Amino acid sequence: MRYFLKPLFVFLFTFVAITAQGQLFKNNIRQYKVQLAGKSADLIDGGGVISADSMNTTFKDKGYGPVTVNLESMKKKKLQPGEIYNHVSEATVIVSSAGRCGEVNDRGTECKRIHTYPASGYVIDSEGIIVTNYHVVNGYVTKYNKISRDVLVVMLKDGTTFPVTEILSADKSNDLAIIKIDPKGVKLPALRVATKDAEIGDPVYIVSHPKGYFYTFSSGMVTDKFSEINAGQYRNLMAISADYAAGSSGAAIIDQFGNVIGTVSYTKTLLHSDDDAKTQMVLKATIPSSCLLKLIKEGN
């Protein structure tokens, strides 16, 4: 019996050790930041990418028609938070401008390193259709971007990187952009977009890249629904309590079933009226899924 128990113990210990590993600790710099720069350099050197100057000639605030997207029906089975993270993270991407600035310093040395400015986005069609913010794409094409104008890239969770080939739609007022990559025949994991807006009190989840902490998971609830004027138009917004920061722009807001109910847009710091140095609250505003569906189906 003793000899039987020993191998059994070894087997159980090994099984528990492997199971306990679960999710590994990632290296945000080496695993994503360094790879993002290196693979962007490969795309730039390989040619055939769309520069900011070229993309700027077709990018506009509005005036786009409907977009052909293969949207799957909403999921109705409630998921555990860990299941939501595993599902959503696979369809969450890094969207970044990249380029060599070519600036020459006081010693006459030219800067040849690749500059990147990672933000977030998410796949809605396995053929390579991705949602992000208008201001993310505009940050690439704008004249104020002086140092990363060679290519707009999309990096998947596994590090595979593609150049953006087309801007399918954009809406400045609602801060949305729909972009296209060519995944070379690979079917990408895609998220389902909710056809019904969330209500105040509903739980929400986000997978995004705040300040270079790639694929960070946070949760909260819908705290408010309000409208405001932006770019000369009224728009509807959904405030949430889940945390996000710079780098999270364009990330999907997810319900408890794994459906997209919104898109990260901006944060606003609310200060004490008697003391501007005192932060009382941070408002986190997101664009509800109904705005995205309208842009897809009707254009603007």
Rank of each mutant, 00 (worst) to 15 (best):
T279P: 11
Y215T: 06
C101P: 09
P189M: 04
A239N: 03
S73R: 11
A285T: 12
Y122P: 03
P7E: 02
S54P: 05
V88H: 06
F11G: 07
T132I: 08
M221W: 10
G63N: 01
D61S: 14
L188Y: 04
S120D: 08
A119Y: 02
G99N: 06
S289A: 11
I179L: 04
I179A: 04
K278A: 09
Y64C: 05
I18A: 05
C291P: 12
K172R: 12
K268E: 15
V151S: 07
E127I: 14
H115W: 07
G82S: 03
Q280L: 15
G250S: 03
S218D: 13
A245H: 07
G258P: 03
A41I: 15
I229E: 00
L12T: 08
Y85L: 13
N259D: 08
K187A: 04
T58R: 08
Y117A: 12
A190V: 01
I253C: 09
G258E: 01
Q31P: 08
D276V: 15
K75I: 15
V193Q: 14
M221A: 15
E199Y: 11
C101H: 12
V222D: 00
L152R: 02
I94V: 11
I94C: 04
T68E: 08
Q35F: 13
N174V: 01
V151W: 06
T19I: 13
D42V: 15
S120W: 01
L295A: 04
H87C: 13
F226E: 08
A251W: 04
K143D: 14
L191T: 06
T116I: 04
L237E: 09
A17K: 04
R192N: 08
S73F: 15
K268R: 14
K6A: 09
